[in-house]
């Protein structure tokens, strides 16, 4: 299926409107509708849920609690977090977050689910049943046993050693519109506070995404809400970074639409 970009898709139809805001909106809405349809189809194949048996209420003082079934998997491991993959058949993943509690939580979740950074298979204290379960989970996840955690801002220390070396970036930014001052908080609010239009962290991430992604096949998946003005974001990516962004999947989650945006090279 041909990839199409919102700035390109209507260009051939009326020949003029590259800068017509209303046309742009119309086109963007069409893309959103397609993404909603895709989201409906995908409900028949829900994501495999990680076990969260290890979590307690204490964890959620500092880490955003996974709530929505559809998004649980993503949320619990990524706050404003990149997961960057080393290229290769053996997949290696780097998870970053500036909240050390979120990293600890993600580390425990990874261990519980057999996606392990530091693992000593000979050293389990579990009873037999658990051991069996753990082992089978580990086997299942054998191909992603190489997760690493770094406490940092976005992917800051990986610049520029991993310039154009990252195949996939998953980014669930703090996208909730707030005062700019709220993003400098010290606790749970930093997991969602995104400043004006929820764009402060998203905008700061664009340069890094453009630096890290492999050419020409790198892909970044990013969550946005409509308050983030995604059509505007798409224009910035297109003009400043030669990247295209299209809504891939879109679902209503309580009072907002969450959209998975797919960012690729033009």
């Amino acid at each position: 299926m041909a990839e199409w970009h919102p700035l390109r898709s209507y260009d051939g139809e009326n020949g003029n409107g590259m800068n017509e805001d209303d046309e742009k909106f119309k086109s963007w809405n069409q893309l959103n509708q397609l993404a909603i349809d895709k989201g409906k189809i995908m409900t028949t194949a829900p994501a495999i849920m990680p076990t969260l048996d290890h979590s307690s209420m204490d964890d959620y003082q500092h880490v955003y609690e996974p709530k929505n079934e559809n998004h649980r998997r993503r949320r619990q491991r990524q706050r404003h977090e990149d997961r960057s993959s080393y290229s290769g058949t053996g997949i290696s993943v780097i998870a970053t977050d500036l909240n050390p509690f979120a990293l600890q939580f993600a580390q425990r979740t990874a261990e519980e689910n057999g996606i392990v950074g530091i693992e000593d298979e000979n050293d389990t204290n579990d009873d037999n049943d658990n051991e069996k379960n753990n082992t089978s989970r580990r086997r299942n996840n054998n191909y992603i046993q190489k997760i690493e955690f770094i406490e940092c801002n976005l992917a800051q220390p990986l610049l520029n050693r991993l310039e154009q070396k990252v195949d996939i970036i998953l980014f669930n930014p703090p996208y909730v519109p707030t005062e700019d001052t709220e993003i400098d908080g010290n606790d749970i609010e930093i997991s969602w506070a995104g400043g004006i239009n929820g764009r402060k962290i998203i905008d700061a991430s664009l340069q890094q995404i453009a630096t890290l992604l492999t050419k020409p096949d790198g892909i970044c998946y990013m969550i946005t809400v409509d308050d983030n003005l995604p059509h505007e974001l798409s224009t910035i990516l297109h003009n400043d970074y030669k990247l295209q962004m299209i809504p891939l999947m879109r679902r209503r989650a309580s009072n907002e639409y969450l959209t998975v945006q797919k960012i690729t090279w033009l």
């Binding site: 500036l98 940092c152 700061a204």
Partner: peptide, 19 residues
């Protein structure tokens, strides 16, 4: 610590505020 490097920079150490 616990296998995780803390690479956080203070704001005044950053080239520009990357957030």
């Amino acid at each position: 610590t616990n296998g995780v490097p803390n690479m956080m920079l203070e704001e005044d150490e950053c080239e520009r505020v990357r957030l």
